[in-house]
Write a protein that binds this DNA or RNA. Structure first.
Lengths: 337, 337
DNA sequence: TTAAAAAATGACAGCGCTGTCAATCCATGA
DNA sequence: TCATGGATTGACAGCGCTGTCATTTTTTAA
């Protein structure tokens, strides 16, 4: 039989209410009692029953992860990080794959929140980048944490974990420049993604810092896909162009694009990295499944998610911590491309 | 405020117990009453509170998905399917990423089951292919459903959803043979995976059915990775070999291997599919991110998972359905490779 | 027609916890 | 010394549901 609060109460010689107080870190418990209870809890290996807690109390111990992202590796990593934080803090995780482009997605999520009595939401792009959505949710007295691209939070509706794609992109570009490149092509992802914009800004900033004049012809507006990388690279390296107008390096907005570009280069008999350098972004499994392996930027997604979830839980416990921001800067991973 | 069982009882003019009976599909409710209650349930949009159910009853409404698989796309699809079935049946899904190679993984999972009062487990490879693990779990009176490769269940410990890789592999191989190929290389995945073995069997069976003698030199023992595909293809197509000893087609055990093989072919200036045909398996996003796109086999993972979960729930409700087996045969997807 | 059996329904306790509020304890200062 | 008030602690109801068992209604058979 599982140990219940009553067992612990008997063991510690206090009332169940006191156990409850200690378990919830409430004040008004003397230090002596608190320690006595904690000892009993440990000895009996007591873990409060979540169902009972949810039923009896006004607060909830459920967190939901609402996602919609074609990148399964990203989701899985995030999920693992969130779960890890939830476990440690005695929360339950509900997962919620959604279609963010759906007309009434906000209502749907709100319904879900109400029905399952969700206390908090972990949001990644694209949801974290939908201001109206976030606003509606936070108005419901449901706490939110957002993981998004940028360096400063767009508002103070929730704590944010910012992934500084801009600085990382600048670092990558600088790396290319240090390698001697001056004509660096840029294949963008979809412009609706904050990350694309941020990465582009970083690229531009690096150029500027090195007094390299930006050449509009080297900018390809693509999307986050392999095909887009193939097309982009073909366009940039077209033999119709005089050699002087072709870039000697290509900054791809993510690994998938980079893989496509790499592929196109191979088709055109351009040797990598001798004749052309290509960089990716994200350090996805993809980046190791090309040849040569991609030089890219790595972000510790699992850790980011865990951190974000802890921020969310902290926010739920106290009344504060709204304005908190954590920033991660993806790190350059130099490989063979 | 959420509608509770009491609201429905009042609305329908019966006791809460009767509502409970209807909600749980218990017998001993007259048809008339049942319909009256169902009408009220619908009108009030009543959904039983899971926490209360779990707390009050002896049965549990929680299912866990225990997984450990490097293929994130597979996991995400499975997860979506399981979730969909859970939602429809009023179950809750707990996810549980695990390291299957860990020494005491069985104990860990059992602990988790006990603590969260899990009623059933959805298992995919590698867990579904660990007989001892499955045995231990089912002894706990926890229901299990396994999704695995094969055509018949290995035992009757649980319902199984079998993915008939063998037949699918035979179909793919036959497709290559129909294209005129006689010398077909085979790059295997890890031999610890049932799927590899099954796919190999299908390949051999197709050869036999067409009176093609199996050539041991065309078999490469690899693993499920891009690199393995590159290496395998290089070996098979080595210029050290007389042309007559090189295959004209390569059966790759999954898309990742196939992508590697495709890549190697490109390196060696072998044109696809003119000089060499390559097939994959799994229809992963990978298979569309190569050029030409891979001919492969598609399995409806989401649907498989949903189906399996329904089987699990059926098993939990009644006492029967242990021996049930559903079989899926992945379907040939002909593309450009 | 009526007793007995079977089917349908309901009353009520209680799952493990939290919220409310009352009771107790203790240090303080008049 | 004793009232005062804040800090601690506990008693108890009740969250929404299910399990048990008693009660009522219906069906069956004599």
């Amino acid at each position: 039989m599982k140990t219940t609060i009553t067992d612990v109460a008997k063991h510690a010689g206090v009332s169940i209410k006191t156990i409850s107080r200690v378990m919830n870190n409430e004040p008004s418990v003397s230090q002596a009692t608190r320690e006595k209870v904690q000892a009993s809890v440990k000895e009996l290996n007591y873990q409060p029953n979540l169902a009972a807690r949810n039923l009896a109390g006004t607060k909830s111990f459920s967190i939901a992860y609402v996602y919609d992202n074609p990148n399964a590796y990203y989701i899985i990593d995030m999920q693992a990080g969130i779960l890890s934080a939830c476990r440690q803090q005695g929360f339950e995780l509900l997962i919620n794959p959604c279609d963010s482009s759906k007309e009434n997605i906000t209502e749907e999520v709100i319904n879900m929140i109400k029905h399952a009595r969700i206390a908090g939401l972990v949001l990644t792009p694209p949801f974290s980048e939908m201001p109206e959505f976030v606003k509606r949710i936070t108005e419901l007295d449901v706490k939110v944490v957002r993981i998004m691209s940028g360096d400063v939070a767009p508002d103070d509706l929730s704590p944010c974990v910012m992934v500084n794609d801009r600085d990382a992109a600048q670092t990558i570009t600088q790396h290319l420049i240090d390698l001697g490149h001056k004509d660096i092509g840029f294949i963008a992802g979809g412009a609706e993604h904050m990350s694309t914009i941020e990465r582009y800004k970083g690229y531009r900033r690096a150029l500027k810092a090195n007094d390299i004049i930006f050449n509009k012809k080297l900018l390809i507006e693509g999307e986050y896909s392999f095909e887009s990388g193939v097309e982009g690279a073909k366009q940039l390296m077209s033999t119709d162009l005089p050699i002087s107008e072709r870039p000697t390096a290509i900054f791809s907005c993510n690994d998938e694009i980079a893989a496509g570009a790499l592929f196109a280069a191979r088709l055109m008999n351009i040797s990598i990295p001798d004749q052309l350098s290509i960089t990716g972004f994200e350090n996805s499994p993809f980046s190791r499944q090309t040849w040569p392996k991609l030089t890219t930027a790595d972000q510790p997604n699992r850790q980011i998610a865990e951190n974000a979830t802890n921020l969310l839980i902290a926010q739920m416990r106290k009344r504060q911590s709204k304005g908190i921001i954590t920033q991660y800067v993806p790190q350059l991973v130099v490989r063979g491309s």
